[in-house]
């Protein structure tokens, strides 16, 4: 998965899901926020429990809204990309 700009690519393996939580995109987002995000400004990534406005979530090259958004169940080999929208010109 990547979070651009300054793409960071990570391979994440989930063996079994912990505490019976579904291993969906919502779980992945929280997990990333808790384990990998160094910037303390969590609101730059997650706001009110979901990915903040201005960050596009792509599931295998499709807007996550086409795939069920945060309820999408992760499959083996899925590519999840977090992209900041750009505004400069």
């Amino acid at each position: 998965m990547e979070k651009t700009a300054n793409p960071i690519t990570l391979q994440v393996e989930f063996t079994t899901d912990t505490k019976g939580q579904p291993s969906n995109v919502a779980f992945l987002t929280t997990w990333l926020c808790d384990h990998l995000m160094k910037d303390p400004r969590k609101e730059m990534f997650v706001l009110e429990g979901s990915v903040r406005p201005g960050v596009l979530v792509l599931i295998n090259d499709a807007d996550w809204e086409l795939e069920g958004e945060e309820k999408y169940e992760l499959q083996s080999g899925d590519e999840i990309v977090f992209v900041s929208t750009l505004h400069g010109g």
């Binding site: 730059m44 706001l47 903040r52 406005p53 201005g54 505004h87 400069g88």
Partner: peptide, 8 residues
């Protein structure tokens, strides 16, 4: 819209 602080 994105948070104003995130707009570069």
């Amino acid at each position: 819209p994105p948070p104003a602080a995130s707009v570069l």
